[in-house]
Amino acid sequence: MIARRTLLASALALPLPARAGEPWDAVVDPATGTLGAALAQAEKAGRPFRILLRPGIFTEKLTVRVPGLTLQGSPGTVLQYGTAAGTAKPGGGSWGTGGSGTLAIAAPNVTLRGLTIRNSFDYIGARRDGAGNGAQAVALAVGREADHMIVDRCVLLGYQDSFYLQARSLITDTRIVGGVDFIFGGAAAWFEGCEIVTRYVPNADGFGYVAAPSTPAAQEFGLVFSRCRLRREAGVPDGSTWLGRPWRAGGNMALMGQAAFLQCWIDAHIRREGWTWMGYKGPDGEQRRLTPPEARLWEFGNAGPGAAPAGADRRLLTAEAAKRFTRANVIGF
């Protein structure tokens, strides 16, 4: 029985003959195969590769290293793992935030479609028990090598640091769920038609920050949200959540966060002040704050009960300035 199961798993991870309308190089069923085996096959192929995942749960922590790979989910396909910053690595040491991701992308021109990617770390339990270093637990990590990343019609689930972006990315019609800094990084990224959902956390004083851009000062654009919907889970109160805060990662003075929300619908959980500061350690070792007026944090044409204007630090683009914020300008594709 074990031998037969192994043979089935291996077969499903091998390239299959292309069918009309389904030109898949590998089709994987979680009952009999693994995504890891299919990725290994893709690496051996040495060319762009297409993988279809059947419905079910894949409990795997993986890195994509194949340029041009397409990973397509089916309704009910879930990729999950439960690693957070500070949890032990196999072979010794512990994961950092960037290494905690359920799925990491480390190659250019990768496309993800129709997947649910979840970090299943017990954030609520860790918070209750005082465990972990803030419980950063990434669902999807797009590394610096992953230029021209596409995420389409996916669901990304976490609590703190759900989605980490460090390379040019296009994110369309995707549901992104989290709480603290749950869309973050130094990438130029264009989010279009996405649903961005703040999670409920029992006994929380506040409900976090949507965006934490760490954009290089020399880079014109960072995290740009176009025609997205900012919603909340049941129990998240009005005026409890920040649009975001600028992240000067590692105290790097060359980072000056950039984010913009353009023609989005914003629910009443977003605070009237909009943006807030984030602390960092300066070159002299002193603790400092990077404030919204120092960073490049903007809105334009938003609607809904949580939309601007409100507060001196919640700045609106002029119609002329907003013309610069196009998909072509932000990411070039």
Rank of each mutant, 00 (worst) to 15 (best):
I2G: 09
A3Y: 05
L7Q: 13
A11H: 13
L12P: 05
P30H: 03
L39E: 08
L39N: 09
Q41D: 14
A45K: 12
P48G: 09
P48I: 08
T59N: 07
E60Q: 05
T63K: 14
V64P: 01
R65W: 07
G73V: 08
L79N: 02
L79H: 03
G82L: 10
G86N: 03
K89L: 00
G98W: 09
R113W: 09
I117G: 10
I117P: 06
F121Q: 15
G125N: 06
A126G: 14
G130C: 03
G130R: 02
A131C: 04
A135E: 15
A139V: 01
E145H: 10
A146S: 03
A146M: 01
M149Q: 09
D152R: 10
L157G: 00
L157Q: 07
L165S: 07
L170W: 10
D181F: 09
F182L: 00
I183Y: 06
F184A: 11
A188G: 04
V197L: 06
Y200Q: 15
G206V: 12
S214M: 02
F225N: 02
S226C: 11
R229H: 13
L230E: 09
E233P: 02
D238T: 04
D238Y: 07
A249I: 05
G250E: 00
G251R: 00
A260H: 07
C264A: 05
E273D: 07
T276P: 07
W277G: 12
M278K: 14
G282R: 13
Q287T: 14
P292E: 11
P292V: 14
P293H: 12
G301H: 12
A303N: 15
P309L: 08
A310M: 13
L317E: 06
T318P: 02
